[in-house]
Design a binder for these strands. Structure first.
Lengths: 299, 299
DNA sequence: ATACCTTACGTGGACCGTAAGTATC
DNA sequence: GATACTTACGGTCCACGTAAGGTAT
């Protein structure tokens, strides 16, 4: 179970092709074939079905472990790298789009007021990409958003040694096109909207499966899919009536062409969590302290 | 970062010796030296201080990742192995000593009444060993005990894909020697005992650092150390006045030579959690269902 | 017929053991 | 000076690329 073999295993199933995986990893098809054969021999099970390429049951099990293993391997390397290349004038943030609201912006402004000559970079990414950037050392600090019951934590995948901190709780809102019958309402009940047409925008809005979980329903079925992390594109879709989406009120209220209506039932908040490694860089720690001092922390 | 290198890295720091690690792994000292050198070259940091052998700061970071990585590697292998060697008439349980109380015993008896010819093996181990046996496929089901606030989960290290279930909540008790001034009390307050002499028996009783956490104090200092998983040995130490220990009341009450006094403050329970892989064997699933049906489950 | 994966084979490098070297107690 | 880790060196095995061989669409 060499990590290289696991990496090509994951790549093969990502690309659904041996040759595609080979190209993306800089191997020949032959090498990829040999990697998969070696893994299958080692584990004593066929892992990949060929033609078409798909995981067998055993392969599916391995797929539950392999990405986490590779991520953690990167995390270990990044943790050690951070020890001798701490650049105190650089700060790289990774954030999901809806996490970049007034709370984070204000704290960042406050930090820059005290620390001049701070070189800040912000990367807007999907949720898993934010976490993998933080864990892999490509970002000093991450902000991830989601919906949850008040003061409940967001569910986080296994991250290894990191620190998580509640950064903000905001009102959750639903985006309606301006002419929509509910667009004028002061509040809406999310459960009433379970059967509506929704935009499946897992990296920008609150993911639909998350809405299903917190509302304990199997509604919120996707009507149109939105990939990427573009809030205005999402707003344009919503404005044109392609479906509904859930966002934090402070972010939603600033979007053009739509009406943002707060959610009253069930009692939910839009929550932003800050994630940083256990040995953060100096500016990352300062920003975390600024936000933590305001919002209260948890392990 | 080959897993073999990580394994010898962990072994070297466990043994605090290159030659010791070599002996335990079946390598020569030379190979171990080369492994560490390869790791250090790969990560660009000295990881191990020699003479005496100890982790450098970078090595300490790696030590936070390496055991979890190796455990998860075993878990992946075990998950796949379980797919084609499910033996429906065997059931191997792993449990920490204080988890093997009446709740588990009764459920097991109930299972054996319905499933005849079931070949049961019980392994009593320390907490981490229980988890690593379950995750590594050496046990079908694990029971881990600990102290927590009522209906709070026990803190679990990263286990990868497993299912955890609250198996029982019992009264927490403190063991006193029979002549002790507090031995006759109906209840005691744990916070009053923070400065007492305690037995440090992390694999048998509730670990002292756990008591410190739930009581939010830095008391509960170890007075004598107890290694292994022997409840009667622990009771003998307590009976002879070598220190106090915390155990679940149903278990403590059955021990000879000591007085078991329930804890009234802070509000704590002794909790037992059941851990099993996501694809359990048939008997393991039956036992988990028996216990889950009685105690209520959680993700 | 043609992608696409597998197998055969040769070379270069990685890994381990033996043995000599070096540093620390 | 003894113990314990490091370095040098050689043999073996493994992993990759090239190229030929299957196989299913």
């Amino acid at each position: 179970m060499d990590p290289h073999l696991l990496r090509t295993f994951v790549a093969v199933l990502d690309h659904r092709s041996f040759s595609g995986a080979a190209a993306s990893l800089g191997y020949t098809q032959s090498a990829v074939s040999q990697h998969i054969a070696a893994l299958e021999a080692d584990l004593g099970s066929r892992l990949v079905e060929r033609r078409p390429v798909a995981p067998t049951p055993a392969g599916a099990r391995l797929l539950e472990h392999a990405p986490a293993l590779l991520l953690r391997l990167d995390a270990a390397r990044a943790d050690i790298a951070r020890l001798h290349q701490a650049r105190p004038t650089h700060l790289t943030l990774a954030a999901s789009p809806a996490a970049l609201g007034p709370t984070v912006a204000r704290a960042l402004a406050e930090l820059r007021a005290t620390a001049h000559a701070l070189d800040v970079e912000v990367r807007v990414l999907g949720r898993e990409a934010v976490l993998s950037d933080v864990v892999g050392g490509r970002a000093d600090l991450g902000f991830v958003d989601g919906a949850a019951a008040p003061s409940d934590p967001l569910p986080m995948p296994d991250l290894g040694p990191t620190t998580t901190l509640a950064a903000a709780e905001e009102t959750l809102a639903v985006l309606f096109p301006l002419g929509h019958p509910l667009a004028g309402r002061r509040t809406v009940r999310l459960t009433d909207l379970a059967q509506a047409q929704w935009i499946d925008a897992p990296d920008t809005a609150v993911p639909l499966d998350r809405l299903r979980t917190v509302c304990r329903t199997d509604g919120f079925r996707p009507w149109i899919r939105h990939r990427g992390t573009d809030l205005h594109g999402l707003a344009a879709l919503a404005a044109a009536g392609h479906g509904l989406a859930a966002l934090p009120l402070p972010v939603a209220a600033a979007l053009p062409g739509i009406a943002a209506v707060p959610v009253s039932e069930p009692r939910l908040v839009h929550r932003i969590e800050l994630v940083h490694p256990v040995n953060p860089t100096a500016p990352a720690r300062q920003l975390a302290d600024l936000i933590g001092g305001r919002a209260g922390s948890r392990a």
